[in-house]
Design a protein around this nucleic acid. Sequence first.
DNA 1: ATATTATCTTGACACTGTCAAGATTTTGAC
DNA 2: GTCAAAATCTTGACAGTGTCAAGATAATAT
Lengths: 199, 199
Amino acid sequence: MPAKKYHHGDLKNALINAGIEILSKEGVGGLSLRKVAKKAGVSHSAPYAHFPDKQSLIAAISTEGFNQLYAELDAAISPHIKNPKRQLVEGTRAYVQFAMTHTDTFKIMFSGILEKEKEYPAFVEISCKTFKRVLDVVVACQTAKILKSGSPEILAVSVWGQVHGIVSLALEGQISHTVLEHYALQEVVAFAIDQMVLS
Amino acid sequence: MPAKKYHHGDLKNALINAGIEILSKEGVGGLSLRKVAKKAGVSHSAPYAHFPDKQSLIAAISTEGFNQLYAELDAAISPHIKNPKRQLVEGTRAYVQFAMTHTDTFKIMFSGILEKEKEYPAFVEISCKTFKRVLDVVVACQTAKILKSGSPEILAVSVWGQVHGIVSLALEGQISHTVLEHYALQEVVAFAIDQMVLS
DNA sequence: ATATTATCTTGACACTGTCAAGATTTTGAC
DNA sequence: GTCAAAATCTTGACAGTGTCAAGATAATAT
């Protein structure tokens, strides 16, 4: 860390990381461009040299979140090339783990705070890449007769939606105490996935 | 509509309705207390006589949304007392329909914009009541051997999460074009639910 | 070395949520 | 019915926000 120069050197990434940090400490509501700028040690308008507007910074943070999610998913799945069922189980476990560990990043990625996601190519790319990874696992499970045959895309959406929905409801406090007091979220999701598995 | 008096008469509900209207026209990002006040024809501070803060108005709007969701769910389910499977099918259809028709109300209900939902008793009540309604259907399906036996609460969470997750992903544009171009959202959800049904 | 570009600062603007002080109306106690 | 208290609404102010314009500074290219 050199002393503060006029030019920051890597402000763009510094802003993204400052944003992620604020997000985890103050939540989505506490995330402002000016706070991010201050945390990065620059003036309140400096971010505009790197992001055309706040939405664009949010897109960058979300993209970074997706990159991390993909990495964790892949790390959980890859060791089990020969075992489709464990791919499914460990993948969903990693997804739930990510959501619980990086709650607010997860929210900003999926809760519609980012309004025109299609306008951010990097976001679309990693988002599609992630879905493709899910698709791979689903196809592997289909050929192993662990999941029903049929359109793999729809089935992948079903599986992802299943996990995503339960996690989302839990994060919003919509899942009744009687459930979450007796079972950990991971168990609930595992149960749900088990519901879809054949035999 | 009487001419404008100093006292509005039913400002609280007028504010809620103005909020819902703004929500549907400008989305979550366009919802501000001052716009709501203007639309209701009062000064920018008038809302504070009825809501302690913006979160509280959002809670009221969300509560109203849940009331409507419950009503539509119930209307779709009740006609089929003797047929648990149709209860399940028509209930999910109504849920998807609600989300597609009142997209931004749905978002404000479930996307964590409301930060401390537990502090709003009316919200908690209708939210629990809705879950109970889902639970009823699930139990009926279990006794009819249409859904697996086991903890009905977890199963209800699974079913609700399944539908909710797919709908949420679709609303956020996270479901690939190749899926949503060839199948309507209702079909995708129906497929997913069919996946859980026995036989 | 100089011109161009990228980066950053300062200052301003309209908009936001929120509060305080006061005006107006309704309600309740007698 | 009168009058005090409470509820409702307005006006004015404040700090914080996203965003833009103008200018300062540094890096790059010619």
